[in-house]
Amino acid sequence: MWIRGPYGTSPLRKGIHDMGTDIHADGGLSRRHHSETTLQVNGKPHTLTLDHRRVLLDVLREDLDLCGAKKGCDHGQCGACTVLVDGRRVNSCLLLAVSLDGCEVTTVEGLTADGEELHPLQRAFLDRDAFQCGYCTPGQICSALGAISEAAEGHPSHVTDPSVPSGRPVPLSRDEIRERLSGNLCRCGAYPRIAEAVEDVVR
């Protein structure tokens, strides 16, 4: 049966253990409420001792100074915090970082591999003027990236024609793009341009 694994299937994944009892007690941190956690972020491993309450979004922004993922609502209601975890788009504001130990995280900063050449989606957003204030933009781009691979892997959406055979790639029509990106709000109203930018890339 075709099925994807859960998070944490990368080689970095650690053994299963009670996080509260196997870390050192020194350093002034409550050992029951902090855990050592390793995340592979944009290809680089980071091992951090994290407050269990810390969500991935705050790890990126406050611990790693990667502020591309934005805090728009902090409750999974706007999509500005969208990043890819083990290749899948997620709301980083709702993921407790400790539960992601061993995962691979890609943020908007990771899309420009050499810091120079833009990812085709980034280029398309510029070409189409697919943003204004820019605050939702990194989330839109990461979400589009995830949505494109989901469609290629045969994930349907709410608007997918039921006659599309299951398991086959879903062509990304304008309606498909709009539905699949609906988890990313844009108050500046750049939606039509964003859809055009995504179309540019999938064509």
């Binding site: 990667l66 502020c67 833009l118 820019g134």
Partner: peptide
Amino acid sequence: EGREKVTGAARY
């Protein structure tokens, strides 16, 4: 400032 915004480099 477009490049800064699409790469996440723009600071708010």
